[in-house]
Computed example of a mutant assay.
Amino acid sequence: MRKRKLDTGAAAEGAFLRVENIHLRFGGVRAITGVGFHVNRGEISSIIGPNGAGKSSMLNIINGVYRPQTGTVTFLGRTHHHMRPHEAAEQGIARTFQNIALFKGMTVLDNIMTGRNLKMKTNFVLQAVFWGPARREELENRHKVEEVIDFLEIQHIRKVRVGRVGLFADRPLLASLGTSAIVAAWVTVLSVAVGAANAFLLERVRFRGKSLLALAMLAPLVIPGVILGISILAFASRLAQFADDFVGVELEFLRPGLPLVVIGQFSYIVSIATLMIAARLKRFDTTLEEAALNLGASRAGVLRTITLPYLQPALVGAGAIAFLMSFENFNTTLMLVGSDPPLTVMMYGRMREGASPVLNAVSLFLMIASALLALALLQRPDARQD
């Protein structure tokens, strides 16, 4: 972090936080060199910069975690060369850290109440017996905590112990489960419909370049999921930007989000659906269709009463495979997801913070559900006949 020119005009006179000429070194490494700024009352300010620029170091200086070699911090008119963290907190300088440390075994409400400890003025003896002024003070601060809980809309877990939120009380996880189901349903419908059309095209129609088309259809199956996702994201972003610049049309479905996730998953799952349906269609006796047509049946009637019933096992199997592959997909989805993460992306984010009983329960539930679905498909009479 390098030196910036300070605006020492009238605005600085009304500043409630002023940082001047901060220098911070770690051995021979200069983390901050001659930096200063001020924040006026009513302003929301931010420190922006790349990794290693000194953003966290500057915040650590303001709230007393680091001690600079030179420079001062002035807060509410009081100038300090260095404040201890608890002194900064007592003055009203709050700080959140990148690594969240919670008290496991305590409820969500109790964890938030811990942050109000500095606002309590009674001694620990009165607080221990919960009597007189301590009781009134506790109730006043609890009211403030309840306001925070209402603001965050986490009333349903206010009494839940940290690290012990149940599956059905974890609303973000349930929402991601629903998101995955919606995406998988769309991918299944599109893959089976387009896969059936592709199967008829490849098996019933003769045209030049059919082998090349079949080879191109298989290409997404050999491309790594991450590469496929990045390629789709780059192409869709360029296409959306072109439409916005030259046509003036905003194509939101080409921006990162659930529509693009559906497109990305569909791009390779449809190939698998096509292969499954085409393999069944290849064994179909076309003389049955010819006989029905000779007896006066329409082509739509033949398709509805003869061809599709024969293809039903392949259609159901392709749909089940498409749904499961979409539901469990991670690599491609991670590259294309927006603000509504599916289950796999949500679980990946949670696992980075450490495993929990809820994640274990979800994993077990998905394994059991997948096994039951596979058994149900195998128990179908037409599946056993095949």
Rank of each mutant, 00 (worst) to 15 (best):
R4I: 08
R4S: 03
R18F: 02
R18P: 00
F37E: 06
I44P: 00
G49Y: 05
A53L: 00
G64T: 01
T72R: 05
T74Y: 00
L76H: 03
H81V: 09
M83G: 00
T96H: 04
Q98A: 06
Q98N: 04
N99F: 10
G105S: 06
M106C: 01
L109W: 02
R116K: 14
L118I: 11
K121P: 01
T122G: 04
R135A: 05
E138S: 03
L139S: 04
E140C: 02
E140N: 04
R142C: 03
V145C: 07
I149A: 10
G166A: 13
A169D: 15
D170G: 07
I182R: 14
A185N: 10
V187K: 09
V189A: 15
V194E: 06
R204N: 05
F207W: 07
A216S: 14
P220T: 02
L228C: 07
G229P: 15
S231M: 10
S231Y: 13
L233Q: 14
Q241M: 14
F242H: 12
D245T: 14
F246S: 11
G248N: 08
G257P: 04
L258Q: 15
L258F: 11
L258W: 11
V261H: 12
V262D: 05
I269Y: 11
M276S: 08
I277E: 01
K282E: 09
K282V: 02
K282Y: 05
K282T: 08
R283A: 09
E289D: 05
A300E: 13
G301Y: 15
L308G: 12
P309S: 11
L324T: 14
F327A: 05
F330T: 10
M335F: 12
L336R: 01
P341T: 12
M347L: 15
A355D: 14
L359S: 06
M367D: 07
I368R: 09
A369E: 12
Q379G: 10
R380N: 05
P381V: 09
P381D: 12
